[in-house]
């Protein structure tokens, strides 16, 4: 610890201790001070004051996931199409071809998903 270079790391140690105490002290205080009054209503799922019905752990249909995934195609396309449209006048023919290839790649994905029946709601 007499090494001046190493003693600089003392700050890190102090910060570490303070950070741990700072995080744990409120938890300990809460344990000490918080009034505990458990009741069935308090533990019930919050439904804006209505009587809770069922469990909050419910399953969503996988169909939603497929729709969201296909939507990403349009989202990504929009992000790139806007700057492309703004700069359209000053772009070369090569840039136009590159953009068309990119759009066609995405369209191909959409057509594939469509053909596979991802857009049919069953």
């Amino acid at each position: 610890m007499n090494d001046p270079y190493l003693s600089q790391y003392l700050f890190v140690a102090v910060f570490f201790v303070v950070a741990v105490v700072f995080a744990l002290a409120p938890l300990a205080l809460v344990r000490l001070l918080a009034p505990r009054k458990p009741s069935p209503t308090k533990h019930a799922t919050y439904e804006c004051g209505l009587a809770s019905r069922g469990d909050s752990w419910i399953q969503f249909r996988a169909g939603y996931y497929l729709y969201a995934l296909v939507y990403v195609i349009f989202a990504v396309e929009t992000v790139f199409l806007y700057p492309w449209a703004v700069a359209f006048g000053g772009l070369s023919f090569g840039a136009f071809v590159a953009m068309m290839v990119f759009v066609l790649l995405l369209v191909e994905g959409l057509v594939y998903a469509w053909a596979k029946g991802a857009l049919d709601w069953k």
């Binding site: 918080a34 009034p35 009054k37 009741s39 209503t41 308090k42 019930a44 919050y46 004051g49 009587a51």
Partner: peptide, 8 residues
Amino acid sequence: RLYNQMPE
């Protein structure tokens, strides 16, 4: 019910 769900 909301009052009941509030902590003391």
